[in-house]
Design a protein around this nucleic acid. Structure first.
Lengths: 221, 221, 221, 221
DNA sequence: AATGAATGAGCTTTCATTCAT
DNA sequence: AATGAATGAAAGCTCATTCAT
């Protein structure tokens, strides 16, 4: 259905096709926000349509059903993180630098994409039921490529050879996600706004310190 | 309401009051399971009532509304982890031992209480909106007491003095929770069942290794 | 059903029968208040039972059903006005005095029996559907006896011979009832409390003046 | 809500908006009939929807809730009597004529609008709770303008100067309303149909006679 | 391409009534 | 005589979806 709609737009380069593509985009944006906020069950088609400023009927025209729209929202948002992994994850010689760059990129991606964080959390509670329709191997691909970085680090003897790469992937993801995921809940522990630039950097440094002093061999210390 | 019902039962030890308490309990158990599985919005009162084997009306009689029932379910389940924190967290002389015992207790509590894990995750997405009615300072109390253990460790010079206790609390919680939280999603990375005794122990050891080699001073290495 | 319960009580003079009669009375009083306030549809069995301080089950034991209870409430309250008509309506020689006494008695009866006023109003909206089960000729009997007073007045030449007795009955009833009936609605027209002794007397005098100067021959003026 | 829907219709004179307005009107008519008959508590949304021949959902779409619909019904019906008071109550030189015209207009308005009579009676039992949302000063405005007529009559020396205008307003309203209000109850007193043209006129003449011979100075007699 | 109006199924909630003790 | 617990039917209300233009 997604593809179908896209092809249509391709064909028609005149005014009508563009409006159509614009409507589709507006729906997608509104749906992202509202599904992120309330989940599949909590979201209301009426609210999305009103927020997008379009007629409810068009929403069905473009996306078929609430569930299909939800899946498209997942696709739309996961494409963003694909892009991230393509760009920010090139191996350099310094393993520590590689890991730092990757973690930083992931962490700040999450910081800037609260909707993605929430969508991924709803999906976790769904057991990835819908995301699987979008990503065969659901599970941020970032993490898979992060695995390569670790593997490379082991080769170069920077990282302990007995390191369980999969566990590390899961852990790094957890350490980053949790900060946004449970932000409202842990916020009371701090005076400062958890999303301020300073606090974000504090958290990132904490994560890096925890990881490095754990997984790196300690010969250099 | 909870207390009220209990007192009633206290008074009458004969058959009458007990059935009431039993019904209440059955509702609470069914509701726990179904809210855990589907969340507040996804759960259906009919399903809960049928599962509990009682008339829908009684559910309203005992709990007032769907939302109130949900809050009672949170209370009911959070009481379990209170108990944990009361019992398993007594300070010994060995700081490493203290941390290990606490993390192990928490980790295995989560392993045995999938419903709790899921309820807490739904609540995170709700910003703790409902849990706040149950726990003034929502956020597993376990973690707060875990803070004392870290503090004690710092005093004894086992743990680095510059450690940010709150960040560690958040991180430990993340490292434990993620494993159950996103289990269905990360499972494809492994052949083995993530909930098998062996795999649980593997994860726990990974967490401990990550933590220790990070937060402990490295004089002993 | 009413009689049945009474006979029972007659038989048993010991404690049990008295309690039973007392419970019945409490239910009737509570039901009167609540039916008067909210009507048959608006009243709730639970509320009546709680207000009477008895178990809902007893209410069904004594009265059979909500509707039957309502009918008993009507009977219970109409008996009060029967008593009135028996006592206050004896013919004297002075026709004006007779009418005055009767109207005054009726007006103050209503003033002191707000519940009766409301019950009779609900019944009017019901077309007397339920009251008919209690009084064959529903319609305050007072009024019928009031008819005799008028008739007597005509005989004595105090009242115009062309007076339509039935219309007068309806009108007098209206003039008295409306004051209590629509009290909350007309109250804003006055500063004073419509139920104060002074205001009640003002209204009564207005009614009497309106009636007399209308229906009496004007020879004496 | 009322205005909103009307504006909508204004914009689009083609088929689309009109059906909406028509549905709204059908609901209002059905609701008037059924609320008049059974009151707010006795009426059933399903019955109204079925009677209006529309889907229950639309009723909520247009009116929001049962109570809101009830309020709109009151507004809708009170507008009718506003119109009456605007048209039929212009002062002429003859005071008797003025009063007669006003009472006649009011009396026949009631005769032709049984629903209005009943709605106003339910509201009286509600203490005007809902009508207050529609009319700041609930209480037929007719009556207030009737007050002006009386006042004018006093000026012209046709009506006794000590007349309490507010009492007269209440009384006239009572004398008219009661005939329709309690019609089913008093009907057994007559053989004829109370709503027949003849009987209506009889009642009206009775009311006028009662009023005039009371409130007018009797010099002319 | 776009829309206002409409719908049926299903949701939460309520209520008069009865069961079991 | 009295009661706490339980129930089925139906109420008010909501929602994803489709019709007609």
């Amino acid at each position: 259905m997604n593809n179908g709609a896209k092809e249509k737009t391709m064909k028609k380069v005149d005014g009508r096709g563009q409006r159509s593509e614009e409507s589709r985009g507006r729906i997608l944006n509104s749906a992202t926000r509202i599904f992120a906020k309330k989940g599949l069950d909590g979201a209301r088609i009426d609210e999305i349509a009103e927020d997008a400023g379009i007629n409810k009927r068009m929403l069905y025209h473009y996306f078929g059903s609430k569930e299909d729209l939800y899946v498209e929202v997942l696709r739309f948002n996961y494409e963003k993180i694909y892009t991230l992994s393509k760009n920010a994850f090139n191996l350099a010689d310094d393993s520590k630098e590689n890991v730092t760059r990757a973690v930083r990129a992931y962490f700040y991606f999450l910081a800037k994409n609260e909707d993605f964080v929430r969508l991924t959390s709803w999906e976790a509670l769904n057991g990835g039921r819908f995301a699987k329709k979008v990503i065969p191997q659901f599970f941020d691909l970032v993490e898979l490529e992060f695995g390569d970085i670790i593997k490379d680090g082991i080769k170069r003897n920077f990282i302990r050879p007995d390191t369980d790469i999969r566990q590390v992937i899961v852990s790094v993801q957890a350490l980053c996600l949790v900060y946004f995921n449970r932000r409202e809940i842990v916020q009371p522990l701090w005076q400062e706004d958890l999303l301020s630039e300073e606090m974000l950097e504090v958290r990132l440094q904490h994560i890096l310190a925890l990881i490095f002093d754990g997984i790196f061999s300690h010969e250099e210390e």
